[in-house]
Amino acid sequence: MHELSIATSIIKSAEVELIENKAESIKEIFLEIGKLSGVEIASLTFVWELAAKGTALENSKVNIHEPEGFARCGECSTEYHLEKIFDVCPNCKSPFKEILKGKELKIIKLIID
């Protein structure tokens, strides 16, 4: 259940920003959590309420963008969609690849007041 750690980490970072910007509240938070990041959105949503309770994010709207996985083949340079982290190149079947998208785990922005 590392999603609880992730949620707590997001909340702490956001609260630091809130204080640094001398703001009163966080209206919205925008997250980018790639489909290959290892974070289950359903689990994160499940623990979010608990983790956010009593914090500056208790009533904030949470927007999550989930980039799809993309890779470039290490042998033939074909770029392809990665459903699973171990998908092989559809062109040459090589497992060697550079993951271009899908591993994101970021706080993109906050709307504060």
Binding site: S13, E24, I111
Partner: peptide
């Protein structure tokens, strides 16, 4: 504050682009 805020949700936008696990 709250009374004022409803409906016109301007707010300030803070762009972070920050890794969630940055500290770790």
């Amino acid at each position: 504050d709250h009374n004022h805020d409803h409906n016109h949700v301007h707010g300030r936008e803070i762009n972070l682009e920050k890794e969630i696990l940055l500290k770790n």
